[in-house]
Design a protein around this nucleic acid. Structure first.
Length: 424
RNA sequence: GGAGAGUUGACCGAGUGGCUAAGGAGCUCGCCUGGAAAGCGAGUAAGGUGUUAAAGCCCCGUGGGUUCGAGUCCCAUGCUCUCCGCCA
């Protein structure tokens, strides 16, 4: 959520920043209108309440002195009626205002390139060189099916399209990748491991920005009004919802493995084969709560921690900075890491590392108390995949496949796998 | 699913209709001490909104209601704990 004061003080600036996303102004004009209305009525009602508070103090005193309070009480009854008429107006307008604010995305950082779509993303660096195959290489779904380690047909039978069953060394590979990533981030990058609930309540979903705007993309559990998490970002960022942290606690680094659940509404027909786009997939996520003044340095180190996974797996990738047209709703700046996927003959997103600045913190009410006393301030929140496990698995199956149909295991995973190769 | 208890300040905790929501822990300073702890004394203290600053307004889990006035009474509800049931 954007800062109301900031919108008040720099309306044109904020409006232009939001418009750089190329999706209109999200009705931001309404913010000013509603805010002004609300403040006007609020001033009136506060004045009336002041009188009410003053006068009601007199009643017990008058009674003690044996004076008649009937007139005063009649007068106050009338005042009370007036207040009861205006008060709901204030909260009603306040609620409307909040809804408008919740549906306005974050303002992109000034350095984010303006663009319409992912075609306008800016390449930052390329690491590694895509392998030249001297045989007819296969897509990972064929590699997996031929080795009997991925079973899409049976997954469809028990669940439907966009699900996968991992089997044997396939299941073990997924588990090995997960453990490798968690160990790397906890042992070498200073992250604390979290294993959160995979369902969350509405407040958490609002806190990180999935609701109210994207409810249709989420799996909902009506019995308890829970949502299956679309990413660990939701439970982990919201761990500190409604808290005031001490400044010396910052920065907070968390990493979490969770499955992620997405309806993938609107992506019908895209990436229908293989592990790339599933209703349920595994991901290791990294989340940071940082001081505002160095959150962009924290974004760079977050990105490097995610890249380190692919470096050690020795798989080629590139880093792009998302343009305003491709930027997520809550994000001020995002880097995507894209892994080389031979069957797609291009780089495919495997991680998204973002700085949300105070946008989520304001929604989730996550603050810290600056050392030099002062009022609590909102933290900056960041997160990034470190990495999407299913896509990493796909990338390994494709990039490490051999002419005989077997798949070599990257060196760093061999201790986890107990073998250096998956064969028939 | 059933029954009961609880929910108050960065922590603990008193408070069933009206004076400024007790007290304690904490923190700061002082006394005491070789130094510290304990003890004693004094001071300080949450958050939101608003303002140049203030005043004012709001805040006792949440949402309604009763009342001139609600932490306190009524209704609904979230969460935590205990017991019963079910269950890995």
């Amino acid at each position: 959520m954007l800062d109301l004061k900031r919108i008040r003080e720099d309306f044109e600036g904020v409006k232009q920043a939001v418009e750089r996303r190329g999706q209109g102004d999200f009705g931001i004009d309404q913010v000013l209108v509603l805010d002004e209305q609300r403040r006007k009525i609020l001033a009136q009602v506060e004045q009336m309440k002041n009188k009410q508070n003053q006068d009601s103090k007199m009643i017990p005193q008058m009674k003690k002195e044996g004076k008649n309070t009937d007139d005063l009480m009649a007068e106050m009854k009338a005042l009370s009626e007036e207040i009861k008429k205006l008060d709901p107006r204030v909260s009603q307008i306040g609620e409307e205002l909040k809804q408008v604010l919740l549906n306005i995305p974050n303002t992109p950082h000034a350095s984010v390139p303006v663009g319409k779509s992912d075609a306008d993303n800016m390449e930052i660096r390329k690491v590694g060189t895509p392998r030249e195959f001297d045989f007819e290489y296969k897509a990972h779904w064929d590699v997996g099916a031929d080795l009997d380690i991925l079973d899409f047909e049976r997954a469809a039978k028990i669940a439907g399209a966009r699900f996968t069953v991992y089997k044997g060394l396939g299941a073990r590979l997924e588990r090995s990748i997960t453990n490798f990533m968690l160990n790397l981030h906890t042992e070498e990058h200073g992250y604390t491991e979290i294993l959160p609930p995979f369902m969350v309540n509405r407040d958490a979903m609002i806190g990180t920005g999935q609701l109210p705007k994207f409810e249709d993309d989420m799996f909902h559990v009506p019995a308890k009004d829970f949502f299956l998490i679309p990413t660990a970002e939701v439970p982990v960022t919201n761990l500190h919802m409604n808290e005031i942290l001490e400044e010396k606690q910052l920065p907070v680094y968390y990493t979490a493995y969770t499955p992620c659940f997405r309806k993938e509404a609107g992506s019908a027909g895209r990436d229908t084969r293989g592990l790339i786009r599933q209703h349920q997939f595994n991901k290791v996520e990294m989340v940071k709560l940082a001081r505002p003044e160095n959150s962009y340095e924290e974004l760079e180190s977050l990105l490097l921690a995610a890249e380190e996974v692919l470096k050690r797996l020795e798989i080629p990738y590139r880093v792009v900075k998302l343009s305003t047209g491709d930027l997520g709703f809550s994000s001020a700046m995002t880097y995507d890491i894209e892994v080389w996927m031979p069957s797609y003959n291009r780089y495919v997103e495997i991680s998204s590392c973002s700085n949300f600045e105070s946008y989520q913190a304001r929604r989730a009410n996550i603050r810290f108390r600056p050392e030099e006393k002062g009022k609590p301030e909102y933290v900056h929140t960041l997160n990034g995949s470190g990495l999407a496990v299913g896509r990493t698995c796909a990338a390994i199956l494709e990039n490490y496949q051999q002419a005989d149909g077997s798949v070599q295991i990257p060196k760093v995973l061999q201790p986890y796998m107990g073998t250096d190769c998956i064969r028939k």
